[in-house]
Design a protein around this nucleic acid. Structure first.
Length: 424
RNA sequence: GGAGAGGUGCCGGAGCUGGUCGAACGGGCCUGACUCGAAAUCAGGUGUACUGCUCUGCAGUACCGAGGGUUCGAAUCCCUCCCUCUCCGCCA
């Protein structure tokens, strides 16, 4: 969430940003409601002051008539206050709803554009493989080798669920260990997080657990939801706290399952493991001082690059355009791996994403630190995918498939897998 | 899941027969005095958020786990929830 006062004082910039991001939000309404809120707040505080003064006058011994008069006055004040409090509560609700629609500001260098086609390609790594045979997509490969079972999962759990089987299980665990070893070496605190979080935490991170369009599964009657990413549980880790960031950023890594409703998502580009209701992800999350976040975002990106270079997977890095940023992000880089089975003749598919959310999440979650001037500031938060296992599996199966239908395991994973190839 | 105890400021810990409580007392921390310096001692100070204004400050409001309620007035009484601890049960 943006600061109300910031929206008021920078209305033109906020309006421009909303346009660039291709979202609908009404900053004028926020300003109007904010002004109204302050007006009502003044009224309310004045009434409360009167109530406090009235109560204070009744401390000692008083003539019964005087006391009675004061009680009557107090009663009248009480009723007035209750009325104003009610309109205040309604006003705050409205203000919050309007403010939540306003996305974070964007980095001045973020490319301006409407959709993912407008993302700016920054670099490529690795060679796109050329096959002497017709490459299969990961679904064909996986089914042929009994690595993934969509059909049974469909019966047991529903469409877009899957059983990982046999070597695919080892592959998930190997990818997890591979990523964790790298992150540990980089100084990240390793965690396995809960897969469930309170709704307020999810909201603070920028996920809306309710509503038609929500991608989040809620757990009825509990006020909690299944996490769509460990970003939620890692960002919630320090919610409401005053952090000591004087020794540098807090770097955390979290392994979690990720649950997404993905309502209405279907089609060639969501095929197989690409878009599923549940997958495992190793996520990076960082808390830092405001002046550190730009550099830290580049660091997270470089870790993602290192992880995928290590896996020998060809990828490109894109600077996400304003229209494709998502509400909380100030700037975002995606790694897109080459997936030979995607589309007609192979295509790039997003495998990681790293964002600098500046103070947008921290404001709502109440994550602060003491600045050098002694003032309390909201921390900046960043997140980035280390490995989204299901998509990494796609990239591995499709890129390293061999003519006989077997799949080579990239060298870095062999020690974790215990085998050099998957073959039937 | 059952029974009991409890959640107060940076920490410990009073208050909980409603008004004198933003909160005793102790510790910590900061400033000043003493000192060559330090320790000890003494004096003063020490939260956060929001709002307003005559805006390097002043005033007001709120905050004693969270949310409701009772009351002229609640840290103090009542209800719900969350969390912690002890015991029992159950269990991977």
């Amino acid at each position: 969430m943006l600061d109300f006062k910031y929206i008021k004082d920078n209305l033109d910039a906020v309006r421009e940003n909303i346009k660039n991001r291709n979202v609908t939000a009404n900053p004028e309404k926020v300003v109007e409601l904010y002004d109204k809120r302050n007006e009502v707040l003044q009224e309310l505080e004045d009434l409360r002051r009167q109530r406090n003064e009235n109560a204070a006058r009744m401390k000692g011994k008083l003539e019964p008539e005087v006391r009675q008069t004061l009680i009557e006055e107090g009663k009248a004040l009480k009723e007035k206050i209750a009325g104003v409090e009610q309109s205040m509560a309604a006003l705050l609700e409205e203000l919050k709803d309007a403010a939540q629609l306003i996305p974070n500001m964007a980095h001045p260098d973020a490319p301006i554009g409407k959709e993912d086609k407008d993302n700016l390609e920054l670099l490529r790594s690795g060679e796109i493989p050329s096959f002497s045979f017709r490459p299969k997509d990961h679904v064909e490969l996986a089914e042929a080798m009994d690595l993934v079972d969509f059909e049974t999962a469909g019966r047991v759990s529903g469409s877009k669920f899957y059983y990982l089987k046999n070597e695919a299980v080892l592959l998930e665990l190997a990818l997890t260990r591979y990523a964790l070893d790298i992150l540990r070496e980089k100084g990240f605190i390793l965690t396995i997080t809960p897969d469930i979080a309170r709704e307020e935490i999810a909201e603070g991170i920028g996920f809306n657990p309710r509503g038609e369009e929500s991608n989040i599964y809620t757990l009825e009657g509990t006020g909690t939801c299944l996490v769509g990413t460990a970003e939620i549980t890692l960002g919630g880790y320090h919610a409401g706290q005053m952090l000591d960031l004087s020794q540098g950023p807090i770097l955390m890594a979290g392994v979690s399952h990720c649950f997404r409703r993905e309502a209405g998502a279907a089609g060639q580009y969501s095929k197989g493991l690409y878009r599923v209701h549940q997958f495992t992800k190793i996520e990076m999350f960082a808390y830092c001082r405001e002046e550190e976040s730009d550099d830290l975002l580049l660091k997270l990106r470089s870790i993602e690059e290192e992880i995928f270079r290590g896996l020998e997977i060809p990828f490109r890095v894109v600077d996400t355009c304003t229209g494709d940023l998502g509400g909380p992000a100030y700037r975002k880089f995606d790694l897109e791996a080459w997936m030979p089975g995607r589309g007609e003749k192979g295509d790039w598919g997003e495998v990681t994403s790293t964002s600098n959310c500046t103070d947008y999440q921290a404001r709502r979650l109440g994550i602060r630190y003491k600045g050098e001037d002694g003032k309390n500031r909201y921390a900046h938060t960043l997140n980035g995918t280390a490995i989204a296992v299901s998509r990494a599996i796609i990239a591995i199966l499709e890129n390293f498939q061999q003519e006989d239908g077997s799949v080579r395991i990239p060298g870095k994973l062999v020690p974790y897998m215990g085998i050099k190839e998957i073959r039937r």
